[in-house]
Write a protein that binds this DNA or RNA. Structure first.
Length: 543
RNA sequence: GCCCCCUUAGCUCAGUAGGAUAGAGCACAGGAUUCCUAAUCCUGGUGUCAGAGGUUCGAAUCCUCUAGGGGGCACCA
């Protein structure tokens, strides 16, 4: 938003330096359309009373003709009110330069890698993964629109004990199905899906594994299970509308020598040492609470070793920023991963770890009991099938990532006003319907941007203001990496539209008015469409 | 035991980089449709921002302590 730039310039002319000009929409109408407390921030460094600074800034901006008033109020707020002509100009911009207007460039082509979901290929995705998926995908959409070069990656934990257990579990069920009774591994995966995989295995490979011990065939069975699980995970994500650019296998980090090269480099830099027959990383020198084992006494690698290698590999691929979206239960790993990047000489800001909180699944207000170990859990697929992807995503994105979320299936599936998705989608469908009607009446030419100056009803002015604030909201969401701001904005915009719709007719008898109003609707429609597409939610022409 | 996150209206949550008089939705009550979709709109009222200190021109927001809820501690993954 160039108001910020103008303020920046004005402040510079005062001889002050300011890193960021805060702009906010005042809660109270009397405080104008837009406001900045920047003079108060400057008061400290300039050692001058904030009100006099504010007045000076206000004077600087008066030459710029877009405000109907600039007032200095309270301890030193500068409050702006837009001229209607300016709002009309903005509206015209949305209609003629839609993309440039709605997608302000902030990224400068900076390369960002976003790693998310990354669920172990040992079971189906559950609802918590769905939240991570919805969030990650929305964040990607957001950053892409801001001009970042984004890569979406799924990290596959296909090495180590968990997939070993998957293999053992499948093998056990395989024998059980063919011979009855077979000892099941203690921490094995007990879900029904393991039986399903075992049955497929029987169908595909017959009884060939019966006369061989697990150790002999484990490679094959693990591979079979992992591939099978990954296929399912990918399908579930696709059904949810989430796709990835890359699937990075943990195992290939070893087979391609990435972990080795990385450890070599760390060794050269004296960041590793041997103790008690194990190899340690000096994490404690870089902010972690203690050093961490990389290679165990028995010569095998820890999970942390692959993680180091993975992040090292990401850096080598030349990204400017790495975003890791993790379940909140992983927060304990943050210091050690940060330690790795610090040890490799990377600035702190390069790695951005976003925690997505757990989802509490409810049904009719009562919690649904789940246990991954016992294999009792509600899968993402089940929820998508029962509730639908749009609703599910939208609900996930009505909260910021780092807050607990109650997801009530019963409430979510209701087609009622308890469900905010419909509210926004309905606004879109209503506008679409108006355009259909306009066409029916042979008034297609009405869609040509008409004399927008006719837009002078209170509701129209409010709508234009809201539309003109989209870029400000967008920039905030991008900067904070918070897609949920888009969700809230859309609800507010939809609300203004519904009010407008109920009070005024768009297709009035006066063709000039109708034309102007259709133009306004067209802009609203575009913004709704844009916002919904960031969230990954469809914009229906009809409901 | 140690560490991290959360606590805002009856419920679910926003609160934008410390800013002005604390905001939605739901629920509850009443009303609106000769006309573009009533999945809509309009009118009603709520707060010890968990509690106590502190930082400052100014705190829901930052710091310390306390309470409650969740999560995490490994040569597991």
């Amino acid at each position: 938003m160039d108001i910020r730039q103008q303020l920046h310039a004005a402040i510079k002319r005062l001889g002050a330096d300011v890193p960021f000009v805060e702009l906010e929409v005042p809660r109270v109408k009397e405080h104008g359309d837009l406001s900045t407390p920047v003079a108060m921030t400057l008061a400290r460094t300039l050692k001058r009373p904030p009100r006099s600074i504010a007045e000076e800034i206000a004077r600087e901006l008066e030459q710029w003709q877009i405000f109907s008033s600039i007032e200095v109020k309270g301890p030193g707020f500068i409050n702006f009110r837009f001229k209607r002509e300016y709002l009309v100009e903005q509206l015209k911009e949305i209609l003629t330069n839609t993309e440039r207007y709605l997608r302000p460039h902030m990224g400068d082509g900076k390369r960002v890698q976003i790693e998310f979901v990354s669920a172990n290929p040992t079971g189906p995705l559950h609802l918590g993964h769905g939240r991570g998926a919805a969030f990650g995908a929305a964040l990607c959409n957001l950053l892409q629109r801001a001009g970042f070069d984004v890569e979406k990656e799924y990290y596959i934990n296909d090495a180590g004990r968990q997939v070993q257990l998957l293999g053992e579990s499948i093998y056990a069920r395989y024998r059980e199905l063919l011979e009855s009774e077979y000892r099941f591994p203690e921490d094995g995966y007990q879900g029904q899906y393991i039986y399903d995989i075992a049955e497929e295995l029987i169908k595909d490979r017959g009884r060939t594994y019966l006369d061989r011990e697990f150790e002999e065939v484990k490679e094959e069975i693990i591979n079979y299970g992992v591939h099978r699980m990954l296929r399912e995970i990918e399908q579930d994500l696709k059904a949810f509308g989430v796709t990835f650019d890359r699937w990075q296998s943990e195992r290939s980090l070893y087979s391609e020598g990435i972990v080795h090269s990385c450890l070599d480099e760390l060794k050269e830099r004296d960041l590793l040492y041997e103790k008690d027959g194990a190899l340690w990383f000096r994490a404690s020198e870089f902010g972690d609470e203690k050093d961490r084992v990389v290679i165990k006494q028995d010569g095998t690698y820890t999970y942390f070793a692959s993680d180091i290698g993975y992040h090292w590999f990401k850096l080598r691929r030349g990204f400017d920023e790495l975003i890791n979206i993790w379940g909140a239960d992983h927060h304990g790993y943050i210091p050690r991963i940060r330690a790795v990047l610090k040890a490799l000489g990377q600035p702190d800001e390069k790695l951005n770890i976003i925690l997505v909180q757990m989802v509490n699944l409810l049904r009719g207000g009562r919690p649904v009991q789940m246990s991954k170990r016992k294999g009792e859990f509600v899968t993402l697929r089940e929820v998508i099938e029962e509730v639908g992807p749009d609703i599910t995503k939208f609900i996930f994105l009505t909260r910021k990532a780092d807050s607990h979320l109650d997801f009530d299936i019963e409430v979510a599936r209701k087609e009622s006003s308890e469900n905010p998705v419909f509210y926004v989608q309905y606004a879109y469908a209503r506008i679409s319907s108006i355009f259909r009607k306009a066409k029916e009446r042979g008034a297609e030419d009405l869609v040509i941007p008409g004399n927008l100056n006719r837009l002078s009803e209170d509701e129209e002015v409010e709508l234009m203001k809201k539309l003109s604030l989209y870029p400000l909201m967008f920039e905030g969401a991008v900067r904070a990496r918070e897609p949920h701001r888009v969700t809230f904005y859309l609800q507010e915009l939809a609300s203004l539209f519904h009010s407008y719709y109920n009070r005024h007719r768009v297709l009035t008898d006066d063709p000039q008015d109708a034309r102007a109003r259709l133009s306004l609707c067209s802009a609203i429609k575009r913004v709704l469409d844009e916002g919904l597409s960031i969230l990954g939610v469809t914009a229906p022409e009809k409901m």
